[in-house]
Nucleic acid binder design. Structure first.
Length: 422
RNA sequence: GGAGGGGUGGCGGAGCCUGGUUGAACGCACCGGUCUUGAAAACCGGCAGGGGCCUUGCGGUCCCUCGUGGGUUCGAAUCCCACCCCCUCCGCCA
């Protein structure tokens, strides 16, 4: 959520920055509502001040045994006026909030301007697209032939876009999770968490998953105010909602493995085969809570932490800077990691690392106190480290052999116990 | 799920029955000062968050907030209703 004061004090700067995303700031409407709000607010507060003062006088009069009937009836009238004005005020504030909540985070200056993903900029690449001396198979065929991915039975038990993993498949999934978590906790300094997989609507709203526009994407429980976790960002970033953290605690860097669930309501026909787009998928998430001054460099290190996973797996990938048109609503800057996927003959997103600045923290009310000063909003960042299902697919496809077997990447062998599947 | 108790400032803990200088006693922690060679102790002072207006600034002033949301009242931390959360006992259970 945008700082309403910035909208007042630096409207042109914001209009320009947000305009780079192709979003127009309704400044005239905002200014008019903001003016009205202040006008009504002043009026209400003046009346309240009168009521408070006279109520004190009534108390004094009664104590002195004097008659206060006149003052009481006057205040009764003032009270009614206050009530009426407050209704007006609430309406104005509601409309003001609608405007502010619909405004996305202004992109950082070094984010390239562009309409869609074609304007993203490749920052660096690792390895080369895998070459095969034979006709490579897609991971869904590799997995089915090896008996480690069972799409039919996943669908039988749940519905389409659910998958059953079997034997080395199940083991590979677990190995990836363990490898990711071990790397981030032992070498990158993250603290491991295991949060609830169901989250309430306050948490969903806090990270913006339940805005006016989003909401059909989540699985909601019928009898409780709870949702299946759509991304580990939700339970983790909400950890410190409504808290003021001591400065010494920052930065806080946490990682968590968490199953994630999405209805993929708008994705009919997209990525229908294989593990790329599932209703249920595993993810290891990286989240940071940092001092504002450090968030720029924390995004760089967060991205490198995610990249390291792919490097150790020796999977070809590239890192791209998202342009303004491809940037998520709450993000001020995002790097996507894209892994080479032979079946797509292209790079496919496997991690998204974002700096939200204080945009999330403001809505979540997460602050820190530095020295004896006033609390300030912290900055939050997150990134996948990595999406497990997509990594699974990338391993199968990039490590497949002509005989249909799959070589286990070196770093996974201690977890898998074998150096080859099939 | 049943019964009872409780949610107050960074923490502890009064106030609630009997509504009225209680944004909140008192203690601790913290910050500043006096004292001291230094420190501790002692003493003095400060010490919640948000918002509006005024002010170059220092600051001043008003409003809101005692789990959340409604209600009663001239006036609510105090009374009423709903919801949320925590604790104890019982039940159930991986």
């Amino acid at each position: 959520m945008l700082d309403i004061k910035r909208l007042r004090n630096q409207p042109d700067e914001l209009r320009q920055a947000i305009g780079r995303r192709g979003v127009e700031v309704p400044l005239d409407e905002f200014n008019e509502l903001d003016r009205q709000r202040r006008q009504v607010l002043v009026e209400v507060e003046e009346k309240k001040a009168i009521r408070n003062r006279v109520s004190g006088e009534i108390a004094a009069a009664k104590r002195a045994g004097e008659d206060a009937a006149g003052m009481i009836s006057d205040m009764k009238k003032v009270g009614e006026e206050i009530k009426a004005l407050e209704i007006v005020l609430r309406d104005i504030e509601g409309r003001l909030e609608d405007i502010v909540m619909e405004l996305p985070n202004p992109p950082l200056p070094d984010v390239p301007t562009g309409r869609d993903e074609s304007a993203n900029i490749t920052l660096r690449t690792f390895g080369e697209p895998t070459m095969f001396a034979f006709e490579p198979k897609a991971h869904w065929d590799i997995g089915a032939d090896l008996g480690i991915i069972d799409q039919e039975r996943g669908t039988k038990v749940a519905e389409s876009r659910f998958t059953l993993l079997r034997a080395e498949g199940a083991r590979l999934e677990r190995s990836l999770i363990n490898f990711f978590l071990d790397l981030h906790t032992r070498e990158h300094g993250y603290t491991e968490l295991f949060p609830p997989i169901l989250v309430n609507s306050d948490s969903m709203r806090g990270t913006g998953q339940l805005s006016k526009f989003a909401g059909e994407e989540m699985y909601k429980l019928r009898d409780d105010d709870l949702y299946l976790n759509p991304t580990a960002e939700v339970p983790i970033t909400n950890l410190y909602r409504d808290e003021t953290l001591p400065e010494e605690q920052l930065p806080i860097r946490v990682t968590a493995y968490l199953p994630s669930f999405r209805r993929e309501a708008g994705a009919a026909g997209r990525d229908t085969r294989g593990l790329i787009r599932q209703h249920q998928f595993n993810k290891v998430e990286l989240v940071k809570f940092v001092r504002p001054e450090t968030s720029t460099q924390e995004l760089e290190s967060l991205t490198l932490d995610a990249e390291e996973v792919l490097k150790r797996l020796e999977l070809p990938f590239r890192t791209v800077t998202l342009c303004t048109g491809d940037l998520g609503f709450a993000s001020a800057k995002t790097y996507d990691l894209e892994v080479w996927l032979p079946s797509y003959d292209d790079y496919k997103e496997i991690s998204s690392c974002s700096n939200f600045l204080d945009f999330q923290a403001r809505r979540l009310n997460i602050r820190y106190r530095s020295g004896g000063g006033k609390p300030r909003f912290i900055h939050t960042l997150n990134g996948s480290g990595l999406a497990v299902g997509r990594t699974f697919a990338a391993v199968l496809e990039n490590y497949q052999n002509e005989d249909g077997s799959v070589t286990v990447p070196q770093v996974l062998r201690e977890f898998m116990g074998v150096d080859r599947i099939g």
